Computed example of a mutant assay.
Amino acid sequence: MSLATDKLDDKPTLYKQIRRDIESRILTGEWPPGHRIPFEHQLMARYRCSRMTVNKALSELAQADLIERRRRAGTFVRRPQHLSAVLKIADIRAEITALGRSYGYQLVQCTRRAASATDRARLGVRKTGKVIAITCRHSADNVPFALEDRLIDLEAVPEAASADFAAEPPGSWLLHHVPWTEAEHTISAVVADDRTADALGIAVGAPCLVIDRYTWRSARTLTAVRLLYPGESHRLVARFKGG
């Protein structure tokens, strides 16, 4: 398929043709998620039309969530939004793989230490011995996907002391090795601070979706985790059935 190069008048139907041409390339997979759309001046030359006509076509494509326009960077085919069910504990690695994207993992920091008062308060316990504090980053197609900040109570999960969290994400390891009986999700939103913005490749002050999760076994807290996602590319969906 080739974009039209014949001389066309700037009439009301021209922007629709431009939109259809670009939309077709996206929907057929010729232009995959993350692909850069030609710059406006290039589209103007190909279609021999005004910037206003090109901008109208791109604006409609953006409204349809097919493309995203980034200031000073250009226009790109939009990546599929991630849908998460909030009533289950999902494996981020499995979620990304299920979306047909390549999973990446980076352990930023892993510290074993005596539990501080802050650690005990976060875990909801009065006293405990040692904890493992983990910060890691998940990516999809080499694009930052989520930042994870996790605390594991070693008194409740002693086997975590020998786990290799540099090789396996802590969430995946816990789901496959540690049974739990109860969990809680709290969903909120924050703006990215310097650390979060740098880790997720977003601007300072950009919105982030936050999931705070706690898991228990027999009333003992196993782990507390905070997951931060770029707000513009994530949403949560849960479907319920009536009784």
Results as ranks from 00 to 15, higher is better:
148 E>P: 00
52 M>W: 02
37 I>Q: 00
210 V>Q: 10
76 F>W: 05
82 H>F: 06
67 I>M: 04
172 S>C: 13
40 E>N: 07
114 A>K: 09
72 R>I: 03
17 Q>F: 04
197 A>F: 05
106 Q>W: 01
79 R>W: 11
157 V>F: 15
212 D>F: 02
109 Q>T: 15
39 F>G: 14
235 R>W: 03
49 C>H: 03
15 Y>A: 05
26 I>R: 04
207 P>R: 11
240 F>E: 10
13 T>C: 01
12 P>I: 12
153 D>W: 02
236 L>T: 01
218 S>D: 15
125 V>C: 15
118 T>Q: 15
81 Q>I: 15
76 F>L: 09
2 S>P: 00
19 R>C: 06
103 Y>K: 07
90 A>W: 02
182 E>W: 06
239 R>M: 08
158 P>D: 13
44 M>V: 13
106 Q>L: 06
115 A>Q: 04
158 P>F: 09
112 R>H: 14
5 T>C: 04
140 A>M: 05
12 P>F: 09
140 A>R: 01
28 T>P: 01
33 P>L: 07
237 V>K: 02
34 G>M: 01
5 T>H: 04
14 L>E: 01
150 R>Q: 08
108 V>M: 10
181 T>H: 11
7 K>D: 12
12 P>G: 09
47 Y>S: 08
100 G>D: 11
135 T>Y: 02
35 H>D: 08
23 E>Q: 13
194 D>M: 06
121 A>N: 13
169 P>F: 00
239 R>E: 10
214 Y>C: 05
128 T>A: 08
215 T>V: 14
194 D>E: 12
137 R>W: 00
10 D>H: 11
120 R>S: 06
234 H>M: 07
164 D>K: 08
101 R>E: 14
113 R>N: 09
26 I>M: 04
237 V>F: 03
24 S>T: 09
138 H>T: 07
211 I>S: 00
152 I>K: 03
206 A>W: 09
48 R>L: 07
202 I>C: 10
80 P>R: 06
226 R>G: 01
187 I>D: 04
217 R>F: 10
174 L>H: 08
26 I>H: 05
21 D>S: 08
15 Y>K: 07
132 I>L: 10
98 A>N: 12
116 S>P: 05
109 Q>I: 05
188 S>H: 08
100 G>T: 08
215 T>S: 04
116 S>Y: 10
151 L>Q: 06
240 F>Y: 10
199 A>C: 11
31 W>A: 13
131 V>H: 02
129 G>E: 07
4 A>K: 15
116 S>A: 12
227 L>E: 09
239 R>T: 12
198 D>S: 15
130 K>P: 01
144 P>W: 13
185 H>V: 00
63 Q>F: 04
195 R>C: 06
2 S>W: 08
95 E>W: 00
80 P>S: 12
181 T>L: 03
103 Y>L: 04
193 D>H: 02
6 D>A: 11
25 R>N: 08
9 D>F: 12
21 D>T: 03
77 V>D: 13
37 I>D: 01
58 L>I: 12
17 Q>L: 15
198 D>A: 15
184 E>W: 06
183 A>M: 15
178 V>R: 12
214 Y>N: 12
231 G>W: 03
2 S>Y: 09
205 G>W: 10
79 R>I: 09
213 R>M: 10
142 N>K: 11
